[in-house]
Design a protein around this nucleic acid. Structure first.
Lengths: 230, 230
DNA sequence: CCGAATCCGCAGTGATACTG
DNA sequence: CAGTATCACTGCGGATTCGG
């Protein structure tokens, strides 16, 4: 059932054997936001065949990255959640996501944006230094989704759904505003948002979740210079 | 020719569309150590079919991660090298490699260890805090490979081949010693190495390239560091 | 020798239908 | 809701061949 290994004793090769197959890392990404049911995963992963999702979940469970749970009282059903090993993947996922975000072009027709994806973007761009000592909470709303970002003494808790406590600032976007984290920040900077709370907290938000630069895309000159040294 | 996209506007999905196919990240890994020829890549990637290597290189070139070059005078031939965009993948590769290293079991029969893999391990476990202000150089030798690690004022240059200048300490392993970075450190701690230089520098080496803990840990430093680089 | 292109068999994937 | 079943398709592994 498993794809052949890469034949080398190497951390990266091992990682790719475990989560390198199609859809696997995206499943882990969604689970890293919060435990999900099978159907939640199907909704968050547009186009994934049901048999592939089923297979991946079994493989990830086999590899001890994911565990099945019986959902608590109100929901009943099966919940998939990350194990500690799976949660340790988050730094790698954030790093890959940050890099990929810099390679994004304009959204293609049919591309969707999921709450989980934006949540991970928030975690990825979060700047711990800029947030040192800070305590504040935001709630981000659009017709499609509600997210929260709670910073407590410099530590971030970002997730899907409304803020656990009363948020200091509620940022509301119109339908087209929240097409992505990038669009979110653009809209925020242009004031195309509705605020409920101290407006100054919007500036704090922008400085704590800085939009990464992406300008190295077509720069070839540096490469040529470095290569000749090697 | 291209595999279908993931249908979502998300950095991680984009990254996987670009480097998520089989062997792609391993090719980038090898190129991140130094530019390589087609045959070098074949040797460093045991078992990769030639058509797959060829296809990947074209795709990576198309995506502006890799560029072809004519090799300089002595070698003549084609060289593949990373573009700046490709080099920006290194934090993600190191993060994935570190995680995967924690998931490694004992080497399977037939698993090989490549110089590129060990080099990336060195870069991945390098602790900038422990090395702050340090200047020292090591050369690591075994029958199969020679590596160098040069720390200049806390900044690391690790690569394949002998040290560019005269190394402060030469660490020589017997044939079985250098089965992996992990094996390297184990052998070093047990004194199963031959030293040429001040023995105290071996302790420095061990503290600057710490063997990561195998158990679950909350590593905030990695995440913070990665976020800052982008 | 280096740098591939070509052919074939098969496993992994995608799409849809179906079931406990 | 949480999957299994089926089937067509394509990417991959393995080998061989080919041009510079």
């Amino acid at each position: 059932m498993k794809r052949r290994d890469f034949g080398q004793y190497c951390g990266l090769a091992r990682a790719l054997e475990l989560v390198g197959e199609r859809w696997a890392l995206l499943i882990v990404r969604d689970l890293s936001v919060q435990p999900q049911r099978y159907t939640d995963l199907l909704n968050g992963l547009p186009g994934i065949p049901t048999n592939v999702l089923s297979t991946r979940l079994k493989e990830l469970e086999e590899a001890n990255l994911v565990e099945r749970r019986i959902a608590p009282a109100p929901q009943r059903g099966v919940l998939y959640a990350l194990t500690p090993v799976g949660r340790d993947l988050e730094p790698a996922i954030l790093a890959l996501g940050l890099w990929g975000a810099g390679q994004l072009e304009e959204p293609r027709p049919g591309d969707i944006v999921t709450p989980g994806s934006v949540t991970l973007s928030l975690r990825g761009v979060f700047d711990p230094e800029a947030a040192a000592g800070l305590t504040a909470s935001w709630e981000i709303r659009s017709p499609d989704m509600v997210l929260h970002a709670v910073v407590t003494d410099g530590r971030l808790d970002a997730g899907v759904g409304p803020s656990p406590g009363r948020p200091d600032l509620v940022i509301t976007f119109d339908p087209d505003g929240l097409a992505s984290y990038r669009a979110l920040m653009r809209a925020a900077k242009c004031g195309l948002v509705e605020l409920d709370g101290p407006p100054a907290l919007l500036d704090t938000f922008i400085s704590v979740f800085p939009l990464p630069r992406n300008d190295t895309r077509n720069d070839t000159r540096t490469t040529a210079g470095l290569a000749e040294q090697n």
